[in-house]
Amino acid sequence: MDNDALLPPLPLAGGDRGVGSRFRLGRPTARARDLRNNATLHEQMLWQQLKGGRLNGLKFSRQIPIAGYFADFVCRSCKLVLELDGSQHADAAMHDEARTRAIEAAGYRVIRFWNNDLNENMDGVLENIVNAAMVADREPAPAPPASGRGETK
């Protein structure tokens, strides 16, 4: 058996920028740009409500790499990720659950909306986002993992 297969991938040069092992060839800037330039209709609809701090002054970014995935929308200050799901996600529930777990393990809260929610109840979606951001602001930050440095026994 090849021992190299048991080793985790080496970190990227420049440190951990939230990019997982899917991007071993470098920073995923080009892919993120492509995703932003080819946004779905529903991503465009929500972005019109979020950009420039339009929603309660919350600053959102689009297509940000976190834990090896591109998060649709991210509010870094409140560690909140918004994911939009179209009809194709009905058959991808297990993949979406794994994606959510990975992003949550990176310290973010993930909330998902169906595209139909935007069509039928944009005000309700925006209210849910604001409420989630307020909850995130009230919750204490998770304790950092023990590094083993500077600790006495």
Rank of each mutant, 00 (worst) to 15 (best):
R31S: 08
A67I: 07
N3D: 14
N116T: 13
A90P: 00
P142T: 05
G15L: 12
A32T: 12
M122K: 09
K59T: 14
A132C: 06
H42V: 00
G57D: 06
G148C: 02
A67G: 05
N115H: 11
T100Y: 03
K153Q: 10
N119A: 05
F70I: 11
A67V: 13
L41K: 15
N3F: 13
A143F: 00
N115F: 04
P142L: 08
R27A: 11
R17H: 15
G53S: 08
Q88A: 15
L46N: 09
L118N: 13
L126K: 04
S77T: 12
L10Y: 06
A102T: 00
A106F: 01
S147A: 04
P9H: 13
L12N: 10
M45F: 07
V125D: 11
Q63C: 05
A102K: 00
P11R: 02
E120G: 04
A30R: 15
V74Y: 02
K51T: 06
K79W: 02
W114R: 15
V130Q: 05
Q88S: 12
A30L: 14
E97W: 00
G150L: 05
R33Y: 08
E127S: 15
A39N: 03
H89F: 05
P145T: 04
M94S: 06
G15A: 11
F60N: 08
T40W: 09
E97G: 00
R76D: 04
L118H: 15
I64G: 01
R22W: 06
A90Q: 13
K59I: 04
M94T: 13
P8D: 04
D91E: 10
R31P: 00
L12Y: 09
D85W: 01
A98C: 08
C78V: 08
E120T: 14
V74G: 02
G20E: 09
A132W: 02
N37A: 11
I66N: 02
Y69A: 03
S147V: 05
A102V: 01
L46M: 11
C75W: 06
A67L: 05
D4S: 12
S61A: 14
L82M: 07
R22G: 10
D72V: 03
A102S: 12
R112W: 02
D85G: 08
R138A: 12
D91H: 14
R33P: 06
L10H: 06
A13T: 01
K51F: 08
L84K: 07
R27G: 14
P144L: 11
N38I: 01
P65C: 01
P11N: 04
G57W: 03
P145S: 02
F113Y: 07
A5E: 14
M1S: 12
E104S: 12
Y108R: 07
E120R: 15
V125Y: 11
P9L: 14
A92T: 05
L10R: 14
L58V: 03
G14P: 10
N56E: 13
L80P: 00
S77M: 10
N116C: 05
N131M: 10
